[in-house]
Each structure stands twice: as C-alpha cells, then as structure tokens.
C-alpha cells in the first residue's frame, strides 16, 4: 500500500489510533453509520426489539471527539462512504484499527471486496497468550492481574 486512506471508526477516536500513528498526514475518514444511529444494529440495540434511534447526546459526543482528530466526516452507509472517499483520494488501500464490534468486522469484509484493508492492533491493556478462560472475571483476573502489574515500577525513595 503506497497511498492508503485511513478509516477511523467509533472504537478508536483518540490520537493513539494506530492507523493515525502509522500514517500521519494521510487522508482519514469517519462515517456516521446511518443504520447504527437509527438503532438498527446490535451495537446500538436489541436485535429482537423495534429499533430506537440513539440520542443526539451520543452523536454530539462523537462529533466533538472527531473534531480534535485530522479526519473528514461523512454519513450514510459506512462501506460505501469509505470507498467513495478512497476513490476521491486515489487510494490503493485502507488502513484501520482493530475492534471487537462484529459490525466493524462485517464492514471490513465489504471493503475488502474492493480494496486491500490493513487492520492494526491497539496497544492491549494486557497481553495474554493462548486461550483465556472468560468463564468468570476471577479466572481472567487471576491470569491478567500479575501481568498488568508487572508494568508498574515502585517509586524510589
């Protein structure tokens, strides 16, 4: 990828977004996802209930976060808008950042049909190798807590 655009999504609206860090100055876009904001997604509503739009408070919060980032703003169908933006900038690929939201994964698949997509990982809270038992928090934490605290250095006298 020589001329990527960056797709910024709602899971990584900070300067530590690895796409922004890896490609400073490259055109970046965020798309207000119309269906999601209308509540028609499992990210904003119960799939078995009638959709309810999210309130303006949430949109305003995202908007204010986005104004502090070098990112163009669009609204509509996310994949379509990202691809329009990519075409306008003559991009040969898309760089974005990892997310746990299945909706982000589905959009990424759609993008992949048109352009290569590179998904960069965010710095993890704690690195745990191999399968992690999430059956209960205590099992997870028994493994995670020592790793987290291994990064702390007691202040000197």
């Amino acid at each position: 990828m020589q001329r990527p655009i960056l797709w910024i999504h709602g899971e990584a609206l900070g300067p530590a977004n690895p796409a922004l860090v890896a490609h400073p100055g490259r055109p970046a876009v965020f798309v207000f996802d119309s269906a999601l904001l209308l509540g028609r997604s499992a990210s904003t509503g119960d799939p078995s209930s009638p959709a309810e739009p999210v309130s303006l408070k949430r949109i305003g919060f995202l908007y204010e976060c986005l104004l502090e980032l070098p990112v163009s703003l669009r609204r509509g169908d996310v994949a379509e808008e990202v691809l329009t933006f990519a075409a306008a900038h003559g991009a040969d690929g898309i760089v974005t950042c990892a997310s746990n939201d299945p909706r982000v994964a589905r959009i990424t698949e759609t993008l992949l049909r048109q352009l290569p997509v590179q998904v960069l990982a965010v710095e993890p809270f704690v690195q745990l190798d191999g399968p992690v038992d999430l059956g209960r928090f205590s099992r997870y934490w028994r493994r995670a807590e020592p790793q987290v605290w291994a990064g702390w250095r007691e202040p000197g006298p």
């Binding site: 739009p53 305003g60 204010e64």
Partner: peptide, 27 residues
C-alpha cells in the same frame, strides 16, 4: 451552532448535546 447543525443532520436523534464534552482535551 454545533447542536443546531446536528439536529438538522440527524433529525431522528432525540434531545440535544450533553453537558459532557467529547474529545481528548477533556479526557
């Protein structure tokens, strides 16, 4: 003015802005 613009852009979204501001500066 931001609130008014957003009300026009997202007419289905109820209410107005939160007193809580978004952005890294506030964070």
């Amino acid at each position: 003015a931001l609130a008014q613009t957003l009300e026009q852009l997202f007419p289905e979204a109820a209410g107005s802005l939160s007193p809580v501001r978004g952005g890294r500066h506030q964070a």
